[in-house]
């Protein structure tokens, strides 16, 4: 006898898997917990789930979906690394809206998710990050009181941060990496001033700090905390504070170094 429910079960499995893939990618791009949980719930409900329990933290998402025939399925996703990518959040948001409206076949849903993956060439993305760093660091150096030469110096020095990010891997310790970036940016700023590129070492360093500061993490952690996601909010806040401490360690060494060279 053909088991009619097996088709439904297969669909529920694929649907939950694809919904969690979207959720995991949202978290990796730096979305809020509420948005992530909401996305999984909306998609599963659109596919007729009678029960959806989803719990997301910054490192793990787990969801159980119950279908009307009593079939239950649980899947989890582990999140290792996050890098702000607001365009991707926007794309995934649009995709999940589209999926909730049209409710495509689960296999088609999976295909849509795969098709929506970034098609921008990696070289262009890297170039964008480098140009972005240049503008950000230069702009902030002037914003915080530096002159044009300081801005030029900071913009060049600041390029070491996206360059170091290129060697960052999944297994790289995030705190150690931030210390390395801060140390490199700090020491290079001091060296740049000592060879006459720029007049104010403090302004140059402030410009480069702005590239490392965990502003998005602090903002997200507060949003999470206030919307009742205490665990994730605290995790993000601790991560942001650790990053801030790592920045302080790196730049403190650079400041001592600057003292030796008499540029501060």
């Amino acid at each position: 006898m053909i088991d009619l429910s097996s088709g439904i079960r297969y669909s529920a499995d694929i649907m939950l898997g694809a919904a969690l893939d979207i959720a995991a990618e949202l978290m990796e791009c730096g979305a809020e917990i509420q948005r992530t949980e909401d996305t999984v719930e909306r998609i599963c409900r659109a596919y007729g789930a009678s029960r959806v329990d989803v719990y997301a933290t910054t490192s793990l998402i787990t969801a159980t979906v119950g279908m009307p025939d009593g079939y239950h399925k649980t899947q989890i996703r582990r999140i290792y690394m996050t890098q702000s990518d607001l365009q991707r959040i926007e794309e995934l948001n649009a995709l999940s809206r589209q999926i909730c409206e049209n409710v495509p076949e689960p296999a088609e849903f999976e295909r849509m998710l795969r098709a929506s993956k970034k098609n921008e060439p990696p070289a262009r993305q890297i170039l964008k990050r480098f140009i972005g760093s240049l503008l950000l660091v230069g702009g902030f150096t002037v914003f915080f009181g530096g002159n044009a030469l300081d801005a030029l110096s900071a913009a060049i020095v600041g390029l070491c941060i996206p360059a170091l990010n290129l060697i960052k891997r999944k297994s790289t310790n995030a705190v150690a990496h931030t210390v390395l970036c801060s140390l490199a940016a700090g020491v290079l700023s001091v060296l740049a001033i000592s060879i006459g590129l720029g007049n104010h070492a403090d302004k140059v360093m402030i410009g480069t700090i702005m590239l490392l500061i965990p502003g998005a993490d602090i903002g997200n952690s507060l949003r999470d905390l206030l919307f009742g996601d205490i665990v994730s909010g605290s995790m993000r806040l601790i991560k942001a504070l650790l990053t801030a401490a790592a920045i302080a360690v790196g730049y403190s060494i650079a400041i001592i170094f600057g003292g030796w060279l008499n540029v501060l």
Partner: peptide, 24 residues
């Protein structure tokens, strides 16, 4: 004018670094 121009330049840099849709 300095605050506005330098702030806008920095924000444009942030838009690129955080990979915000350029249309936005």
């Amino acid at each position: 004018a300095t605050y506005c121009l330098s702030g806008l330049c920095a924000t444009l840099g942030f838009v690129l670094v955080c990979h915000i849709n350029i249309k936005k």
